[in-house]
């Protein structure tokens, strides 16, 4: 079986007979790390190898992107509006409310758009992927696909990771647009600022590095959400309890990794600024 060769499962060992390399727990931890990297390696191998599951990729893009669009846009609008409203008193103390568009644009484009989009999708999409693949795993549907000569990894995993990697940056653009719109609504209602002036002030302190950094962040977060959801779901065990655990851990781990990646990417981006 191809899948078995590319994604080796831990060998079944006779209980109590084989001596651990380091210790039982450390061996298990390092084995998990190895399995994660093997999983990711197999993803990249399957990604470029035909046949390509375009229909499944589109279906996943539909689920990840379109079905999250309203939630993202609504959250973005409210975030922009509330952020502007909350920032106004501090700036008005200095008579600097004209800086609100710049402040909000920096916050949204540099940080909030990729981060909040990723967190929302980690909760909505990550749990969905984990639960979906987990239930398929524990009900042996994945095994059945293998038996029916369908590559379950390509069909289930590659399409989902690809969909999240593509759609999270797109959703991030929506978030940025609607966030700035929400901010504009508040600024316009208080300062009667024109839309042109708002956009001009908003992009005054933004540079291309900010935008490319955010796109890279969104790509990385999208990949992380898809990969974590798939890994946790694909390796789910112990029946329905395992499904719940897979869904829950997919959200928790992907959120944790998103924050770690945020910190790393910001540090790396600052080197290139």
């Amino acid at each position: 079986m191809d899948s078995e060769q590319s994604f080796p499962q831990p060998e079944s060992k006779p209980p109590g007979r084989e001596r651990p390399v380091l210790s039982a727990k450390l061996d298990a931890a390092f084995t998990s790390v190895y399995r994660v990297f093997a999983f990711l390696g197999r993803f990249f191998k399957e990604l470029f190898r035909p046949p390509y599951e375009f229909n499944e990729i589109i279906r996943q893009c539909y689920d990840v992107g379109y079905k999250s669009l309203f939630l993202i846009c609504m959250t973005a609008f409210i975030t922009g509006l509330v952020f502007t409203k909350q920032s106004r008193p501090s700036l008005s103390n200095f008579g600097a409310t004209s800086w609100l568009p710049s402040l909000v644009a920096i916050a949204i484009i540099r940080a909030l758009a990729p981060l909040v989009t990723a967190l929302i999708c980690a909760g909505k999409v990550g749990s969905q992927i984990g639960a979906e693949l987990g239930s398929m795993k524990v009900t042996e549907q994945i095994d059945a696909m293998e038996v029916s000569a369908t590559n379950p990894f390509k069909f289930l995993v590659v399409s989902r990771i690809l969909a999240t990697t593509i759609m999270i940056p797109v959703l991030m653009c929506f978030f940025a647009g609607f966030g700035l719109w929400g901010s504009y609504v508040d600024v316009h209602s208080n300062e009667s600022t024109s839309f042109t002036f708002f956009i001009e002030k908003a992009f005054e302190k933004i540079n291309f590095m900010d935008i490319w950094t955010s796109v890279v962040k969104a790509l990385v977060y999208g990949f992380t959400i898809g990969a974590v959801g798939c890994i946790r779901g694909y390796n789910a065990k112990q029946g329905t309890m395992g499904v719940g655990r897979a869904a829950n851990s997919a959200v928790v781990i992907s959120m944790f990794l998103i924050f770690i990646e945020e910190m790393l990417i910001v540090q790396i981006a600052n080197v290139f600024r």
Binding site: C61, I166, P169, V170, E200, F203, I211
Partner: peptide, 29 residues
Amino acid sequence: KNRRAVVVGIVLVLGLLIFAVGILTLGGQ
């Protein structure tokens, strides 16, 4: 399937449009 493909395409185009507008605005500035 066709409907999904169209919807995904629209979402992609709109997202890329927002991105392009942002890039062009920034480039203009």
